[in-house]
Design a protein around this nucleic acid. Structure first.
Lengths: 132, 132
DNA sequence: TTGCACACGTTATAGCATAACGCAATTGAT
DNA sequence: ATCAATTGCGTTATGCTATAACGTGTGCAA
């Protein structure tokens, strides 16, 4: 899925996420866009749905939040499974990829004849800076 | 964390989860326990919190649901990272462990001096039976 | 020009989770 | 035995997350 021209709402939501320090909830995004005319959650969720499709935004299932992809310009869907390390103290997120992990997971899945659609890997904990 | 004697509420919630075909949401559990006197979500959430601690129940972050551990009698906390394959069609969940995946993930985490607390691996897709 | 696809706006509602209060039972140290 | 601390419990209220359902406008292709 390549990103076609974003609509105004999509661009606004993406912009907020890109400028954010860490992941944001849909409602936090909504609040940040009230001045641009946003009134309802659906405006945010609809934009997010598209941005997820385009591969420029990720959803963090374990904290019900969204974050801009760490690879500006690229399409994250082409990097295999994306993994996240989420600092529960400062909220910062690190995004990484590991082909061996992909390989093991997909090997197991294959052995079970399970057809994977979407895979989530999220490590919650404390980042180096916060551990001090 | 070993499971001490369960309280009545904990036992009721665990029993519902064990007898269920697949994962259940907290509110579904609540509904199934109305006859035993449950009235409020907190009764369920408090029991679940303990059951998660004891390692006899898992939380599926990507579908806001809970499932009994697939290893009756054992403590799942001792198996390393637990991974789940969740069929979006029939709702069935397969639980598995892969030490190589653990190793790769923990290796990356270590290289970043990130202190992991809780790791989520969930593969959503279609199981063999449903793929037909 | 008509029909379709898509984005959008709005209102309402559904679904998930916890805060805050007070009470009762248990435990364990003195 | 008694007191204090801890833990579980019940209840009410509330907050956060997400989607259903309806209608409008716009652009584009047949």
């Amino acid at each position: 899925m390549n990103a076609p021209q974003m609509t105004r709402n999509q661009a606004l939501v993406f912009d907020v996420l890109e400028k954010a320090e860490g992941p944001l909830s849909a409602y936090t995004i909504l609040d940040k866009l009230r001045d641009q005319g946003f009134r309802a959650p659906l405006q945010v969720y609809r934009a997010l749905e598209k941005l997820l499709e385009y591969g420029v935004v990720h959803r963090l299932e374990s904290i019900n939040s969204f974050v801009a992809c760490a690879h500006p310009g690229e399409n994250c869907h082409s990097h295999g499974i994306v993994a996240f390390a989420i600092c529960e103290s400062c909220g910062q997120v690190m995004e990484f990829h590991d082909h061996e992990v992909d390989h093991r997971l997909m090997g197991w899945v294959r052995s079970q004849k399970f057809k994977p659609a979407k895979t989530t890997i999220e490590i919650r904990g404390t980042c180096e800076a916060c551990a001090a």
